[in-house]
Amino acid sequence: MGKIAFVFPGQGAQYVGMGKEICENYEMASEIFEQASEAVGYDMKKLCFEGPEEELKKTENTQPAILTTCIAMSKILENEGIKPDVSAGLSLGEYASLVIANMMDFKDSVALVKKRGKYMQEAVPLGVGTMAAILGMDKEVLEEVLDLSKEFGVVEAANFNSPGQIVISGEVKAVEKACEIAKEKGAKKAVILPVSAPFHCSMLIPAGEKLSGELDNVELREGNMPVLSNAQNKYYTLDDTKDFLVQQVSKSVLWVDNVEKMINDGVDTFVEIGPGKSLSGFIKKIAKKLGTKVNTYNVSDMKTLNDTIDVLKG
């Protein structure tokens, strides 16, 4: 068997009820939620299990909520003897990777991502920026589209999620224009996303600067496993950690590159941990394009947890 990677989702995967079943069945998961509540100053179980959805969707609540759910689930797997050889996460998910690699304490990280979410939301006034998913278009053609749209304002590639799915980010007019041009140039779809800010573009540099100040107060350590950076597609070192996390706020998420690197480094089993299962879909498409086969498992509730444990311990 090849190497195992734990991968963690980003913002947008959240739903009311996430983590509830796991907490009802595992004391260690419940304790993680209690630690999160202490760190952020509100009842994390209540937010995740009961909502309301409008509260859970607020960026400064979403980020610590997803991180908490991811860590609670990954701790159970580790307790069952299922440990990763490498880890990566999509945007926010990278923090879960750093926690399981012991590069950052969980309580520090959950308080930090609450602030990260707040700074990201505050960086651009509501209604000024947006994001859009461009489906069925090559990276090279999309670069032309972005060049043609720049006269209308800031517009940049934000997420390279999978072959044929790229998310763009920037000022509303420029993003709308890019969607128009993308359709003219053969994109299957160009859809404005229901987001509250233009994440992962240069408009969020001020949020990264504020986060930099917060990171000065957090203890960062050498990891006990490799963790990949979205912004650089390189493995973290202690010296890079702060820079990589600051860059990650305003630079593109190189998820396709991350997955290709893990596969090329011997990973053949990916375990997606946390709410949703979009990463598993992206990984299968990336592997297919590389002409290789990988195993993907998803842990989001008791059934998927037990299924994954049965297969990986069997």
Rank of each mutant, 00 (worst) to 15 (best):
D257F: 02
D243H: 06
L290Y: 06
V256S: 04
E260T: 10
W255D: 06
F282Q: 02
V259E: 03
D268Y: 08
D265G: 09
D257I: 04
Q248C: 07
K289W: 09
G291E: 12
V253S: 02
S280Q: 08
S252P: 06
K251H: 06
V249M: 05
D265A: 12
W255A: 00
V256E: 03
T269L: 14
F270M: 12
G266Y: 15
S250D: 07
Q247W: 10
K242Q: 11
G274H: 14
F282T: 06
G291P: 10
D243K: 13
D243C: 06
G266R: 14
I283F: 03
I263T: 06
D257T: 04
S278F: 11
N258I: 00
V259A: 04
I273S: 08
I283D: 03
D265Y: 15
G276A: 10
F282K: 05
S280H: 09
N258Y: 00
V267D: 07
S252A: 15
S278Y: 13
Q248H: 04
N264I: 01
A287E: 07
V259H: 01
F244N: 03
V249K: 05
I283N: 03
V253L: 05
L290C: 08
V259Q: 00
K285Y: 02
G276R: 02
D265F: 08
L245A: 01
L254F: 10
V246Y: 04
G281R: 04
L254G: 03
L254P: 02
K285H: 09
L279V: 08
T292S: 14
G276K: 07
L290R: 08
L290W: 07
L254W: 02
S280I: 12
K251D: 09
L290Q: 13
W255M: 01
G281A: 08
K242N: 04
I286N: 01
L279H: 02
K261E: 11
K284N: 15
K289N: 10
F282V: 02
I263H: 05
I286P: 03
G291T: 11
S250I: 00
K288G: 15
F282H: 06
W255P: 03
